Simulated scan of single mutants.
Amino acid sequence: MGNQSVTSICGYDADSISVRGKDLVEDLIGKRSFTEAFLIQALGVEPTARQTRIVNAVLVTIMEHGLVPSAVVTRLTHYGAPESYQGAVAAGLLGVGDRYAGTASECGALLEQMVASGEPRSAADAIVADYRGRRAALPGFGHPIHHDVDPRVKRLLSVCEEAGCEGTYIAAMSTLESALNEALGKQLVTNISAAIGAALAEAGVPSGMMRGVILVARCAGLVGHLFEESQRPIADDLWKGAQDPISYEP
């Protein structure tokens, strides 16, 4: 027989369940917060207090985003199929993308690239030139509503400072901001996606996992929308609001 595939996340027998080498009943339930358990399960290492605090702050920051398309879809799916709770949440999650959930993972990858280069400013200039050459928007900068300042950014970065972060990735974010604004000749606001990418990188969360952190937070937010919809429905108005302004043109 060839080598057997293995997983290091979870195992069980008739009497116990193990998660990353910890006993679910004895070590985790009632002893660890959800954020701690999430990090243990995903990363396979004991999370530090700093890491837990920052990830928890990110989850709170991005959980609620208003009546954006993902929340609207969740409410409308429940309206059409009230028996499918999970279907309504899943429908909303399918619409969690770059436009309304942010580009933290792409921002995080760019910051990792800059720090790994050892020359953050040179790397920032190259990144800006690449995006401008492709006529692509650099993720993490500009916002359709918060034109002067994204109020979430300062608070999230202050949490990182309070937690004692080294600030390497936050500094890289500032360097990228400077490179972009110099190239454009104008000031673009640093948005929450850039700050989340920097904060999660400071917490040791790899960029490849950052979209997952956002999805966990948004899933919780959609559950809130779905429960409110079941108590104080607005989906009929949402549907009519979408239908009434649209005319048929053969």
Score class of each variant (00 low, 15 high):
A81E: 13
D130E: 15
M63C: 11
G95T: 11
I246C: 08
A235K: 08
A101G: 15
A172E: 03
D130I: 07
G30H: 03
G11D: 14
E106P: 02
V68H: 07
C165V: 13
P144T: 15
S18L: 15
I234E: 07
I234G: 08
S158I: 10
A235R: 09
T168L: 13
G185F: 09
G133V: 10
E162Y: 06
E228M: 03
E202C: 06
A71I: 01
Y79W: 15
D150L: 11
E177C: 10
G97T: 06
I214M: 12
Q86W: 15
A136R: 14
T103C: 09
V153A: 02
Y79R: 14
I9P: 11
T168V: 09
S193I: 07
N56W: 07
R20I: 05
R121W: 08
L176V: 05
E202Q: 08
T168Y: 06
L76D: 05
V205W: 00
M1H: 12
A104F: 03
P245M: 07
P69K: 07
L157A: 10
A57D: 00
A242N: 09
F38R: 08
L138Q: 01
V213Y: 07
N191E: 06
M114I: 05
G133C: 09
Q86T: 13
Y79T: 09
G97Y: 04
G241F: 08
S117K: 04
R132G: 12
E64Y: 10
A42R: 13
V68I: 10
P206G: 09
E64P: 02
L176W: 02
D125I: 12
V55S: 02
A201C: 13
Q86D: 14
Y248Q: 12
D130V: 06
R132K: 12
G102Y: 01
G212K: 09
V55F: 02
L200Y: 00
R53A: 14
A101E: 01
S8L: 15
S122H: 10
D27R: 08
I214K: 06
D27C: 11
S5M: 13
G87W: 01
C219P: 11
P245I: 03
I196K: 00
R32G: 04
E249Y: 08
T35R: 02
A179R: 06
E182V: 08
T61E: 13
S105E: 12
H146Y: 15
L180K: 01
G140P: 00
Y85W: 14
A136K: 14
I40V: 13
E166W: 01
E64C: 10
F141C: 00
T52M: 04
A88E: 02
A194I: 00
L111K: 00
I29S: 05
I127W: 02
L156G: 03
R121V: 06
R75L: 02
V89E: 00
G2K: 14
Y100G: 04
E26V: 12
A217F: 01
I170M: 10
R75T: 04
V68T: 03
E182Y: 03
A90L: 04
I246T: 08
V6C: 09
A194M: 11
S5P: 13
A137G: 08
I196T: 09
Y12Q: 15
G212I: 06
R75M: 11
